[in-house]
Amino acid sequence: IVLLRWVPVLYAEKMQALEATAWQRFTAGIRFIRSRPIILGTISLDLFAVLLGGVVALLPIYAQEVLEVGPTGLGALRSAMALGEVTVGFYLSTRPFNRHVGMVMFIAVAIFGLANLVFALSSLFWLSFAALLVAGGADMVSMYIRSSLIQFSTPDAMRGRVNAVNMLFIGSSNELGEFRAGTSAAWFGAVPAALLGCFCTLAVTGGWMLGFKSLRQVDRFEDAAPGSKG
Rank of each mutant, 00 (worst) to 15 (best):
A120P: 05
A131Q: 07
R34Y: 06
S148V: 02
G160C: 10
S142D: 13
A224L: 02
S173T: 07
S44E: 02
M143L: 15
A49N: 08
D156V: 04
E178P: 00
D139S: 12
L52V: 04
G182W: 02
G206E: 14
I38M: 01
V69G: 05
R161M: 06
E68D: 14
E65P: 08
V104A: 09
A203F: 14
A22M: 14
A190L: 03
G75F: 10
T183S: 12
P60C: 07
A82C: 08
A20C: 08
L59F: 12
G29K: 07
T94N: 09
M105E: 11
R220G: 00
G136E: 04
M105P: 06
S79T: 15
L176G: 01
V165K: 01
R161K: 13
F212E: 10
I111E: 06
S44A: 10
D139R: 11
A224V: 05
I33A: 02
R5A: 12
T94G: 09
L196K: 07
F125V: 10
E85R: 12
G211H: 13
P8Q: 05
W23D: 11
G206W: 12
A120T: 01
F221Y: 14
R36P: 00
F221A: 00
P8E: 00
F48C: 07
G189A: 10
G206A: 13
A115G: 01
V165N: 04
L114I: 12
L133P: 11
